[in-house]
Simulated assay, not measured.
Amino acid sequence: MMNGLRYFLATVAFMALASSFVSAYDPSPLQAFCVALDGSKNDVFVNGKFCKNPKLVNADDFFFTGLNIPRNTSNAVGSNVTLINVDMIPGLNTLGISFARIDYAPNGLNPPHTHPRASEILMCAEGTLMVGSVTSNPNNQLFTKILHLGDLFVFPIGLIHFQFNMGETHAVAFSGLGSHNPSLIVMASALFGSDPPISIEVLEKAFQVDKNVIKELLMAQFMGK
């Protein structure tokens, strides 16, 4: 009971922190809100979404439920990201924030990836996570820490970053991101799972490995889809 209460309080505190301190990268809105709506000829187009008539906006446009429910991590990497962006909460449109729950199986990995439009602040809510991000060329410096319950780590916008569950039990993290649609580029999928595929010769030269290694990586990515 006490652990459950601590988990709940930590989550609420982090959500308040994320909503207050995540710096918006998206353009600042010129109105209090612009609830997203599927387009029609009578709507106003703003930064990728149409605005719902303010007179028709209601509380459900700013509401989502269910982030307390564990997600299925039975996949190749052993993790599951539930991103709550403008597509999930229409009221996030133009506000410059989104939120995510990440579930990790034992030894589960949220693989190296980037968010082109958002910085991210992540809180470990359960388990033990190794997290890290890598700076851009020419240094490619790795910043890494081990996170326990209540620990936070920041991933600057655009940098490659990851999380790995070091424990033998399920782990959970929550993160706030500085965009209503932060986007996602997973390194392995982008390089070895593009459609059409990147030339083997290009990948062979880029990674300085034998082409047979590249073929195996391409096949592994294909089988993982």
Rank of each mutant, 00 (worst) to 15 (best):
residue 48 G to D: 00
residue 181 N to T: 12
residue 203 L to I: 11
residue 222 F to V: 00
residue 26 D to I: 01
residue 176 G to M: 09
residue 223 M to A: 11
residue 137 N to P: 11
residue 55 K to C: 02
residue 66 G to V: 10
residue 24 A to W: 03
residue 110 N to Y: 05
residue 82 T to P: 00
residue 126 E to T: 00
residue 107 N to G: 07
residue 139 N to H: 10
residue 97 I to E: 02
residue 152 L to H: 08
residue 165 N to P: 10
residue 142 L to W: 03
residue 146 I to D: 02
residue 187 M to R: 00
residue 214 I to D: 05
residue 41 K to W: 04
residue 75 N to F: 08
residue 155 F to D: 08
residue 54 P to N: 01
residue 182 P to H: 03
residue 180 H to Q: 15
residue 211 K to F: 01
residue 34 C to G: 13
residue 33 F to H: 12
residue 31 Q to E: 15
residue 71 R to H: 08
residue 132 G to M: 09
residue 155 F to I: 11
residue 85 N to F: 04
residue 138 P to F: 10
residue 187 M to S: 15
residue 201 E to I: 02
residue 129 L to I: 04
residue 45 F to P: 02
residue 26 D to T: 14
residue 190 A to S: 15
residue 88 M to L: 11
residue 113 H to N: 09
residue 211 K to T: 14
residue 11 T to S: 13
residue 65 T to Q: 12
residue 75 N to D: 02
residue 138 P to C: 06
residue 197 P to H: 02
residue 178 G to V: 11
residue 106 P to T: 04
residue 81 V to N: 10
residue 162 F to T: 07
residue 17 L to M: 10
residue 86 V to S: 12
residue 134 V to C: 08
residue 194 S to G: 10
residue 194 S to T: 05
residue 47 N to L: 09
residue 143 F to S: 14
residue 197 P to R: 04
residue 74 S to H: 13
residue 219 M to K: 15
residue 94 T to S: 11
residue 33 F to Q: 04
residue 21 F to C: 02
residue 14 F to A: 11
residue 197 P to F: 05
residue 27 P to I: 07
residue 208 Q to M: 10
residue 131 V to P: 05
residue 132 G to N: 08
residue 41 K to M: 02
residue 51 C to G: 03
residue 138 P to A: 05
residue 142 L to C: 09
residue 175 S to P: 01
residue 9 L to P: 00
residue 201 E to K: 12
residue 29 P to T: 08
residue 137 N to T: 12
residue 106 P to E: 06
residue 213 V to Q: 07
residue 146 I to H: 00
residue 183 S to H: 06
residue 184 L to K: 04
residue 9 L to V: 12
residue 202 V to R: 01
residue 200 I to V: 15
residue 148 H to N: 13
residue 155 F to E: 07
residue 12 V to F: 00
residue 21 F to L: 12
residue 221 Q to Y: 01
residue 114 T to V: 15
residue 132 G to E: 07
residue 177 L to Y: 07
residue 84 I to N: 09
residue 15 M to L: 14
residue 101 R to N: 11
residue 76 A to G: 00
residue 12 V to A: 13
residue 12 V to D: 12
residue 109 L to A: 06
residue 164 F to M: 10
residue 41 K to V: 09
residue 101 R to Q: 15
residue 37 L to V: 05
residue 40 S to E: 09
residue 142 L to G: 05
residue 118 A to H: 11
residue 54 P to C: 04
residue 83 L to I: 12
residue 106 P to F: 03
residue 208 Q to Y: 03
residue 220 A to M: 09
residue 160 I to N: 02
residue 220 A to Y: 06
residue 10 A to M: 13
residue 17 L to F: 14
residue 171 A to N: 05
residue 133 S to I: 05
residue 56 L to T: 13
residue 106 P to Q: 06
residue 61 D to Y: 02
